[in-house]
Simulated scan of single mutants.
Amino acid sequence: MPSLDPAERRLLLVHAHPDDETIGQGASMARYVAEGAGVTLVTCTGGELGEILVPELEHLAYERDGGLAEHRRGELDAAMTELGVTDHRYLGGFGTYSDSGMQWAPEGHPHHGSAIPADEAPERAFWEADLTEAADHLVAVIREVRPQVLVTYDQFGGYGHPDHIQAHRVATYAAALAAVPSYRPDLGEPWDIAKIYWSAMSASRMRDGIRRLREAGDDNAFEGFDPDRLPPMAVEDDVLSARVEATAYVGKKMDAMRAHATQISVDGPFFALSNNVGDEVWGVEFFRLAKGVLGPVGGDGLESDLFAGL
């Protein structure tokens, strides 16, 4: 059990676009809110260049009428209501940074199968933001909220999306700057975040889930995914640090995913995986410790709480 009183625990998550937070840590966010912890979400862009899965909203696309960011802002509000998160913000304020877009790396590219920057980026693209300027926006949040735990992406952003990579860079730099007493005292009193985690997916669970779906007769489940050659967002279990059990909050996570309707299809493989394989797929979330001391672990060698040891 953590030594911190639940009401004293503060968790900060830094994500690139609306919906990333729910897919990655929606169950954990709901669990920590329910336990009384403070949960703050910082979203770095409005997701202007996201694909639109709702035909009647296709006119909101960046290359057409625009307005997708404003619509996704409402989706994020609804999703956070489902999870119980009341403190969610945009880095620098809504509209400060734009979704940078992406493309899939072609054959022969070193990152074939992963995302890479688009040939052209829109105005105010997050990928092209000045790192110190962007970090300063987050320094102010860190010093205000004073979280003991920060969650963001790894150095590759999970799958190479430039905005995910930039979110990692900004979060990492901001965490370092926020702890320096002489740095920008106008942004608040210094604060050193005790533990920083990178979000992760368990390779063994993804591999098992895909195989079980296909054994059940769904040959199209995660089409293009080879269980033996998983995407880089799936990491082998020996590098995982924490396993947060939050299956009691899977319903909240699924409802939050549905709130992101322009981005997530209820008929897609994410929901198929949940409905056919079980709540444990989306109700147990994994993390890699990037800063701090590993707390007490269970029989699987993993922490069961991001605040373990604090």
Rank of each mutant, 00 (worst) to 15 (best):
A246K: 00
I196C: 09
P232M: 04
R212G: 04
I210Y: 04
W198G: 07
D228N: 12
S204I: 12
E236Q: 13
P231M: 05
A194H: 09
F270A: 13
M257P: 02
V250S: 07
I264H: 03
R258V: 12
D192G: 11
D255R: 14
M254P: 00
P232F: 06
I264Y: 05
Y197V: 03
A221R: 06
D255F: 08
F270S: 12
E245S: 13
I193A: 03
A200P: 00
A272P: 10
L273M: 12
V244A: 01
E245L: 13
M257F: 08
V244Y: 01
D237R: 06
R258I: 11
F270L: 15
P231W: 00
V239E: 08
F225E: 14
A221G: 01
Q263C: 07
G251D: 08
A246E: 00
D218W: 11
R212M: 08
K252D: 13
A248N: 10
G224E: 10
A256N: 03
Y249Q: 10
W191Y: 07
R212I: 01
R258H: 10
P231I: 01
R207N: 08
G209Y: 02
R205V: 14
V239K: 10
D238Q: 15
S265L: 04
D219A: 15
W198Y: 13
A194G: 09
S202Y: 03
P269L: 07
A200Y: 05
D238M: 14
R207S: 05
R229V: 15
I196F: 08
D192C: 13
H260G: 04
A259C: 05
A242H: 00
K195T: 05
A248F: 06
S204G: 12
M257I: 04
D255E: 14
E236M: 14
H260D: 04
G251A: 07
